[in-house]
Amino acid sequence: MTERTETFDKVATLIEPFNRKGVSLTEATTFAGDLEWDSLTVMDFVAAVEDDFDIIITMNMQAEIETVGQLVDAVEKLKG
């Protein structure tokens, strides 16, 4: 299993409590469209990701992240 796959799995686990519609996750799953998250849910989820990976996701980065795959890429980059 690659490090990126492990990161995807960890992100998927963090999404679970927020995935009220039971959407099956792929790299292309969108937070706003597919998961239908509002801004408060996004903030709670970002805090969980930051805590779990011990990283900081800036507001500018958050604005550019629309899919699960993009988030996984950002986490990989930030954990360096």
Rank of each mutant, 00 (worst) to 15 (best):
S39C: 03
F31L: 02
V72C: 09
V75W: 06
I56F: 07
V23I: 11
I56Y: 12
T58E: 10
D54P: 09
T30S: 13
G80Q: 15
F8N: 03
V75A: 07
K79I: 14
I56G: 11
K10C: 12
S39I: 11
I56R: 06
V75K: 02
E66C: 13
G33N: 11
M61L: 14
K77H: 15
N19C: 02
E16C: 01
D38S: 00
V46D: 13
S24A: 08
T26I: 06
L71W: 08
K77T: 12
E6L: 07
E64M: 09
L71M: 14
F8C: 05
A47E: 06
T58K: 10
A63H: 06
I56Q: 13
G69R: 10
A28E: 13
Q70M: 08
T58V: 05
T5A: 12
V23D: 03
V75G: 04
F31R: 03
K77V: 07
K79N: 10
F31Q: 00
T29F: 09
E3A: 13
M43K: 11
M61Y: 09
E16Y: 00
L35R: 01
E27S: 14
L78G: 08
I15W: 02
E64L: 05
D9M: 03
E36C: 00
K21D: 12
F31S: 00
R4A: 10
D54L: 14
D51G: 06
V68S: 09
A47W: 00
V11W: 01
A48D: 09
T29R: 01
F18G: 11
E6K: 13
V68D: 08
N19V: 01
Q70Y: 08
D44Y: 11
D54N: 15
M1E: 12
D38Y: 12
T58A: 14
D34T: 02
T13C: 04
D52S: 15
V46Q: 08
F45W: 12
R20T: 15
E27Q: 14
V42M: 15
K79Y: 04
D54S: 15
M43S: 12
M59S: 15
T58P: 11
V11E: 08
N19D: 04
T5F: 08
F31H: 05
G80H: 13
T5W: 04
L25A: 11
V68P: 10
S24N: 06
G69T: 09
T67W: 08
E64W: 03
R4P: 00
T26Q: 10
F45E: 07
D9S: 12
A28C: 10
N19E: 04
D73T: 13
K10T: 14
V49C: 04
V11F: 00
T2Q: 05
D73L: 12
V68E: 06
T67I: 03
T2E: 07
K79M: 15
Q70L: 10
V72P: 04
M1G: 11
M43Y: 10
E36M: 01
M43G: 05
M59I: 14
D54E: 14
F31C: 00
L25W: 05
L71E: 05
P17Y: 00
I56P: 07
K79F: 04
M61N: 07
F18I: 06
T30H: 08
D73Q: 14
L35Q: 01
V11H: 05
D44Q: 13
L35W: 07
D73A: 13
L14R: 00
I57K: 07
G33K: 09
K77W: 05
F8A: 06
W37Y: 02
E66R: 15
R20M: 15
